[in-house]
Amino acid sequence: MPKIIVEIMPKKDLLDPQGKAVANSLHREGKKEITAVRIGKRIELHFDREITDQDLEMAKGQAANFLSNDVIEDVVAVTKED
């Protein structure tokens, strides 16, 4: 099924409490070589037909204005996946 994948990450400069908690747990597991963890989200938009360039543009717009909170998040990728 054709889909568009939107990837969103917390802004680089902001605290990511979830990532911090996971990083601490990994350290407790002995994985000291991992210096930091940041956790974002992946959103799949499923289509019932072939995805056009316009669809991709539309998804980029939705990603920036609706799917993410631009005060604290960045959209890092909007890609097509067959």
Partner: peptide, 9 residues
């Protein structure tokens, strides 16, 4: 960023 993110835990 002009905002802060809190971590209650």
């Amino acid at each position: 960023p002009a905002v802060q993110v809190g971590d209650p835990f």
